[in-house]
Design a protein around this nucleic acid. Structure first.
Length: 294
DNA sequence: TGTGCCCTGGTA
DNA sequence: TACCAGGGCACA
Protein backbone atom coordinates (compact mmCIF):
# COMPACT_ATOMS: atom_id res chain seq x y z
CA UNK A 1 0.00 0.00 0.00
CA UNK A 2 2.83 2.53 0.23
CA UNK A 3 2.43 4.74 -2.80
CA UNK A 4 3.91 8.15 -3.50
CA UNK A 5 2.45 10.01 -0.49
CA UNK A 6 3.30 7.27 1.97
CA UNK A 7 6.82 6.82 0.58
CA UNK A 8 7.44 10.56 0.61
CA UNK A 9 6.30 10.69 4.21
CA UNK A 10 8.52 7.74 5.10
CA UNK A 11 11.49 9.47 3.47
CA UNK A 12 10.62 12.64 5.35
CA UNK A 13 10.64 10.80 8.67
CA UNK A 14 13.89 9.05 7.79
CA UNK A 15 15.56 12.37 7.00
CA UNK A 16 14.64 13.78 10.33
CA UNK A 17 15.62 10.73 12.28
CA UNK A 18 18.75 9.52 10.55
CA UNK A 19 20.37 12.26 8.50
CA UNK A 20 24.01 12.87 9.44
CA UNK A 21 24.15 9.73 11.55
CA UNK A 22 26.94 7.21 11.07
CA UNK A 23 26.26 3.53 10.53
CA UNK A 24 27.68 1.20 13.16
CA UNK A 25 26.20 -1.88 11.57
CA UNK A 26 23.84 -2.80 8.72
CA UNK A 27 22.04 -6.12 8.88
CA UNK A 28 19.70 -8.08 6.63
CA UNK A 29 17.31 -10.10 8.78
CA UNK A 30 15.40 -12.22 6.31
CA UNK A 31 16.56 -14.62 3.58
CA UNK A 32 14.85 -12.56 0.88
CA UNK A 33 16.86 -9.54 2.04
CA UNK A 34 20.13 -11.38 2.56
CA UNK A 35 19.84 -12.58 -1.01
CA UNK A 36 20.14 -9.01 -2.27
CA UNK A 37 22.26 -7.53 0.50
CA UNK A 38 24.54 -10.22 1.85
CA UNK A 39 26.82 -9.81 4.86
CA UNK A 40 29.95 -8.54 3.10
CA UNK A 41 27.81 -6.14 1.11
CA UNK A 42 26.10 -4.74 4.22
CA UNK A 43 29.49 -4.35 5.89
CA UNK A 44 30.45 -1.77 3.27
CA UNK A 45 28.04 0.63 4.95
CA UNK A 46 29.84 0.49 8.28
CA UNK A 47 31.35 3.82 9.27
CA UNK A 48 29.50 5.68 6.52
CA UNK A 49 27.35 8.71 7.27
CA UNK A 50 23.91 9.19 5.76
CA UNK A 51 23.98 12.52 3.97
CA UNK A 52 20.85 12.54 1.81
CA UNK A 53 17.48 10.82 1.46
CA UNK A 54 15.72 11.25 -1.85
CA UNK A 55 12.54 9.84 -3.29
CA UNK A 56 11.88 8.98 -6.91
CA UNK A 57 8.54 7.33 -7.67
CA UNK A 58 8.13 4.81 -4.83
CA UNK A 59 11.87 4.36 -4.45
CA UNK A 60 13.89 5.85 -1.60
CA UNK A 61 17.56 6.54 -2.22
CA UNK A 62 19.81 6.80 0.82
CA UNK A 63 23.11 8.43 -0.07
CA UNK A 64 26.15 8.04 2.17
CA UNK A 65 29.17 10.28 2.53
CA UNK A 66 31.33 8.19 0.21
CA UNK A 67 28.70 8.16 -2.54
CA UNK A 68 27.30 4.72 -1.89
CA UNK A 69 23.55 4.52 -2.33
CA UNK A 70 21.06 2.27 -0.63
CA UNK A 71 18.02 1.79 -2.83
CA UNK A 72 14.88 0.92 -0.85
CA UNK A 73 11.50 -0.09 -2.23
CA UNK A 74 8.74 -0.81 0.29
CA UNK A 75 6.62 -2.73 -2.24
CA UNK A 76 3.40 -3.84 -0.55
CA UNK A 77 3.65 -2.86 3.06
CA UNK A 78 7.15 -1.94 4.10
CA UNK A 79 7.77 0.95 6.47
CA UNK A 80 10.44 2.48 8.69
CA UNK A 81 10.47 2.02 12.46
CA UNK A 82 12.78 4.16 14.56
CA UNK A 83 14.10 3.70 18.05
CA UNK A 84 17.03 3.23 20.37
CA UNK A 85 19.37 0.30 19.75
CA UNK A 86 18.76 -1.06 23.22
CA UNK A 87 14.98 -1.07 22.83
CA UNK A 88 13.25 -4.28 21.73
CA UNK A 89 13.35 -4.65 17.98
CA UNK A 90 10.01 -4.38 16.18
CA UNK A 91 8.08 -7.32 14.79
CA UNK A 92 8.71 -8.23 11.15
CA UNK A 93 12.01 -6.40 11.11
CA UNK A 94 13.75 -7.29 7.83
CA UNK A 95 16.65 -4.85 7.66
CA UNK A 96 18.32 -2.77 10.33
CA UNK A 97 20.76 0.14 10.46
CA UNK A 98 22.39 0.63 13.85
CA UNK A 99 23.92 4.06 14.29
CA UNK A 100 26.93 5.05 16.36
CA UNK A 101 24.76 7.34 18.51
CA UNK A 102 22.83 4.39 19.92
CA UNK A 103 19.75 4.70 17.71
CA UNK A 104 18.48 2.44 14.96
CA UNK A 105 16.18 2.43 11.97
CA UNK A 106 14.41 -0.78 11.01
CA UNK A 107 12.66 -1.70 7.80
CA UNK A 108 9.56 -3.57 8.94
CA UNK A 109 7.67 -5.57 6.35
CA UNK A 110 5.40 -8.45 7.31
CA UNK A 111 5.32 -9.94 3.82
CA UNK A 112 9.04 -9.52 3.23
CA UNK A 113 8.46 -8.25 -0.28
CA UNK A 114 10.39 -5.02 0.16
CA UNK A 115 13.72 -4.61 -1.59
CA UNK A 116 16.99 -3.15 -0.31
CA UNK A 117 19.92 -2.94 -2.72
CA UNK A 118 23.31 -1.29 -2.22
CA UNK A 119 25.01 0.49 -5.09
CA UNK A 120 28.63 1.55 -5.38
CA UNK A 121 29.33 5.22 -6.02
CA UNK A 122 27.96 6.18 -9.41
CA UNK A 123 26.62 2.70 -10.11
CA UNK A 124 22.95 3.37 -9.48
CA UNK A 125 20.73 2.71 -12.46
CA UNK A 126 17.06 3.38 -11.85
CA UNK A 127 14.38 1.73 -13.93
CA UNK A 128 12.69 3.88 -16.55
CA UNK A 129 10.27 6.14 -14.70
CA UNK A 130 7.71 8.63 -15.89
CA UNK A 131 7.39 12.19 -14.60
CA UNK A 132 6.68 12.93 -10.96
CA UNK A 133 2.98 13.81 -10.81
CA UNK A 134 3.40 16.60 -8.25
CA UNK A 135 5.93 18.49 -10.33
CA UNK A 136 5.68 20.52 -13.52
CA UNK A 137 7.30 17.62 -15.33
CA UNK A 138 3.88 16.05 -15.81
CA UNK A 139 1.97 17.98 -18.45
CA UNK A 140 -1.20 17.10 -20.37
CA UNK A 141 0.67 16.96 -23.66
CA UNK A 142 3.36 14.68 -22.28
CA UNK A 143 0.86 12.32 -20.71
CA UNK A 144 -1.26 12.38 -23.84
CA UNK A 145 1.81 11.30 -25.82
CA UNK A 146 2.49 8.43 -23.40
CA UNK A 147 -1.09 7.25 -23.69
CA UNK A 148 -1.24 7.47 -27.47
CA UNK A 149 0.12 3.99 -28.04
CA UNK A 150 -1.78 2.36 -25.21
CA UNK A 151 -5.10 0.68 -25.89
CA UNK A 152 -5.21 -0.84 -22.41
CA UNK A 153 -7.67 0.50 -19.81
CA UNK A 154 -6.57 3.81 -18.33
CA UNK A 155 -6.55 2.30 -14.83
CA UNK A 156 -3.93 -0.27 -15.79
CA UNK A 157 -1.85 2.26 -17.71
CA UNK A 158 -1.78 4.55 -14.66
CA UNK A 159 -0.09 1.77 -12.70
CA UNK A 160 2.75 1.70 -15.22
CA UNK A 161 5.58 3.60 -13.53
CA UNK A 162 6.98 4.58 -16.93
CA UNK A 163 3.84 6.62 -17.60
CA UNK A 164 3.47 8.43 -14.28
CA UNK A 165 5.79 7.75 -11.36
CA UNK A 166 4.47 6.78 -7.95
CA UNK A 167 0.83 5.87 -8.55
CA UNK A 168 -0.34 2.51 -7.22
CA UNK A 169 -3.55 0.57 -7.14
CA UNK A 170 -5.27 2.72 -4.54
CA UNK A 171 -4.63 6.19 -5.91
CA UNK A 172 -5.29 5.05 -9.47
CA UNK A 173 -8.87 4.20 -8.45
CA UNK A 174 -9.13 7.37 -6.37
CA UNK A 175 -7.86 9.62 -9.16
CA UNK A 176 -10.23 8.15 -11.72
CA UNK A 177 -13.13 8.73 -9.37
CA UNK A 178 -11.96 12.29 -8.81
CA UNK A 179 -11.80 12.78 -12.59
CA UNK A 180 -15.20 11.07 -13.08
CA UNK A 181 -13.57 8.75 -15.57
CA UNK A 182 -14.44 5.09 -16.11
CA UNK A 183 -11.45 2.88 -15.31
CA UNK A 184 -11.96 0.73 -18.40
CA UNK A 185 -11.66 3.66 -20.80
CA UNK A 186 -9.00 2.82 -23.40
CA UNK A 187 -6.07 5.08 -22.56
CA UNK A 188 -5.53 6.25 -26.13
CA UNK A 189 -9.09 7.51 -26.52
CA UNK A 190 -8.79 10.32 -23.96
CA UNK A 191 -8.92 13.87 -25.27
CA UNK A 192 -6.36 16.42 -24.18
CA UNK A 193 -9.02 18.03 -22.02
CA UNK A 194 -9.76 14.78 -20.21
CA UNK A 195 -6.06 14.04 -19.81
CA UNK A 196 -5.65 17.45 -18.20
CA UNK A 197 -8.58 16.71 -15.92
CA UNK A 198 -7.01 13.40 -14.99
CA UNK A 199 -3.73 15.09 -14.07
CA UNK A 200 -5.61 17.53 -11.87
CA UNK A 201 -7.39 14.61 -10.20
CA UNK A 202 -4.12 12.73 -9.61
CA UNK A 203 -2.71 15.81 -7.92
CA UNK A 204 -5.82 16.29 -5.79
CA UNK A 205 -5.77 12.75 -4.41
CA UNK A 206 -2.00 12.67 -3.86
CA UNK A 207 -1.97 16.05 -2.12
CA UNK A 208 -4.96 15.10 -0.03
CA UNK A 209 -3.18 11.93 1.08
CA UNK A 210 0.00 13.84 1.83
CA UNK A 211 -1.97 16.38 3.80
CA UNK A 212 -3.55 13.67 5.89
CA UNK A 213 -0.17 12.02 6.47
CA UNK A 214 1.49 15.21 7.59
CA UNK A 215 -1.27 16.60 9.72
CA UNK A 216 -3.22 13.87 11.48
CA UNK A 217 -0.38 13.27 13.93
CA UNK A 218 -1.31 16.45 15.71
CA UNK A 219 -5.07 16.10 15.39
CA UNK A 220 -5.06 19.11 13.16
CA UNK A 221 -7.81 19.61 10.61
CA UNK A 222 -7.03 17.85 7.38
CA UNK A 223 -5.43 20.22 4.92
CA UNK A 224 -6.24 19.60 1.29
CA UNK A 225 -4.59 22.51 -0.39
CA UNK A 226 -1.50 23.23 1.63
CA UNK A 227 1.69 22.56 -0.30
CA UNK A 228 3.67 19.66 1.07
CA UNK A 229 7.37 18.93 0.81
CA UNK A 230 7.08 16.81 -2.28
CA UNK A 231 10.53 17.58 -3.52
CA UNK A 232 13.18 15.03 -4.25
CA UNK A 233 15.90 16.94 -2.50
CA UNK A 234 14.63 18.47 0.69
CA UNK A 235 17.44 17.19 2.85
CA UNK A 236 16.86 20.15 5.09
CA UNK A 237 13.54 21.76 5.68
CA UNK A 238 12.85 24.22 8.39
CA UNK A 239 11.61 21.91 11.10
CA UNK A 240 13.98 20.55 13.67
CA UNK A 241 14.24 16.95 14.70
CA UNK A 242 12.24 17.71 17.81
CA UNK A 243 9.34 19.05 15.76
CA UNK A 244 8.88 15.85 13.87
CA UNK A 245 7.17 12.78 15.19
CA UNK A 246 9.06 10.10 13.35
CA UNK A 247 6.53 7.43 14.13
CA UNK A 248 4.08 6.64 11.38
CA UNK A 249 0.54 7.82 12.00
CA UNK A 250 -2.17 5.22 12.51
CA UNK A 251 -3.64 4.02 9.28
CA UNK A 252 -6.92 5.87 9.15
CA UNK A 253 -6.86 7.03 5.57
CA UNK A 254 -10.28 7.70 4.14
CA UNK A 255 -10.75 6.70 0.54
CA UNK A 256 -13.62 7.74 -1.72
CA UNK A 257 -13.94 4.46 -3.61
CA UNK A 258 -11.04 2.15 -2.77
CA UNK A 259 -12.19 -0.91 -0.83
CA UNK A 260 -15.74 0.45 -0.60
CA UNK A 261 -17.55 -2.06 -2.75
CA UNK A 262 -21.31 -1.90 -2.24
CA UNK A 263 -21.22 1.40 -0.38
CA UNK A 264 -22.97 4.48 -1.76
CA UNK A 265 -20.84 6.94 -3.70
CA UNK A 266 -20.11 10.01 -1.57
CA UNK A 267 -21.08 12.28 -4.48
CA UNK A 268 -24.67 11.14 -4.31
CA UNK A 269 -25.05 9.18 -1.10
CA UNK A 270 -28.84 9.04 -1.22
CA UNK A 271 -29.17 7.62 -4.70
CA UNK A 272 -30.01 3.95 -4.51
CA UNK A 273 -28.44 3.43 -7.94
CA UNK A 274 -24.98 4.60 -6.98
CA UNK A 275 -23.13 1.78 -5.34
CA UNK A 276 -19.37 1.48 -5.58
CA UNK A 277 -18.52 -1.37 -7.93
CA UNK A 278 -15.46 -3.58 -7.81
CA UNK A 279 -13.96 -5.03 -10.93
CA UNK A 280 -10.73 -6.86 -11.63
CA UNK A 281 -8.29 -5.43 -14.15
CA UNK A 282 -4.96 -7.11 -14.71
CA UNK A 283 -5.44 -9.17 -11.54
CA UNK A 284 -5.86 -5.99 -9.49
CA UNK A 285 -9.04 -4.73 -7.83
CA UNK A 286 -10.48 -1.53 -9.23
CA UNK A 287 -13.25 0.41 -7.50
CA UNK A 288 -15.47 2.98 -9.20
CA UNK A 289 -18.88 4.54 -9.15
CA UNK A 290 -21.00 3.33 -12.06
CA UNK A 291 -23.08 6.47 -11.92
CA UNK A 292 -20.49 9.24 -12.04
CA UNK A 293 -17.65 7.47 -13.83
CA UNK A 294 -18.76 6.83 -17.38
C1' DT B 1 -1.02 -8.41 -23.23
C1' DG B 2 -1.77 -11.69 -19.74
C1' DT B 3 -0.12 -14.80 -16.11
C1' DG B 4 2.62 -16.42 -12.38
C1' DC B 5 5.94 -15.56 -8.95
C1' DC B 6 7.87 -13.62 -4.83
C1' DC B 7 6.16 -13.49 0.45
C1' DT B 8 3.26 -14.15 4.71
C1' DG B 9 -0.43 -12.22 7.88
C1' DG B 10 -5.13 -11.88 7.99
C1' DT B 11 -9.59 -13.55 6.87
C1' DA B 12 -13.30 -16.60 5.46
C1' DT C 1 -7.02 -24.90 5.70
C1' DA C 2 -7.39 -22.34 1.58
C1' DC C 3 -7.29 -18.18 -0.27
C1' DC C 4 -6.49 -13.25 -0.81
C1' DA C 5 -3.87 -8.92 -0.90
C1' DG C 6 -0.59 -6.63 -4.63
C1' DG C 7 4.31 -3.85 -6.89
C1' DG C 8 7.33 -5.13 -10.00
C1' DC C 9 9.36 -8.29 -12.78
C1' DA C 10 10.11 -12.52 -15.80
C1' DC C 11 8.22 -14.97 -19.15
C1' DA C 12 4.96 -16.90 -22.63
Amino acid sequence: MPELPEVEFAAHRLRHFALNKTVAKATSLHPAFTKRLWVAEAKRLQGRTLVEVQRRAKIQLLTFDDGQILEVHFRMNGDWAFGASREPFPAYERFRLLFTDGTRVSLVDSRALAVVVRHDTGALVLPALGPEPLTDALTPRLLMASLAARRAPIKQVLLDQRVVAGIGNIYASEALWEARMHPATPANTLSLTRVARLIDAIRVVLRRAQGERYHMRHDAPVATSQPMPETLHDTADNTTVDDVDVHAPPDVMEFRVYDREGEPCVRHPHSIHSKIVRLVQGARSTYYCARCQR
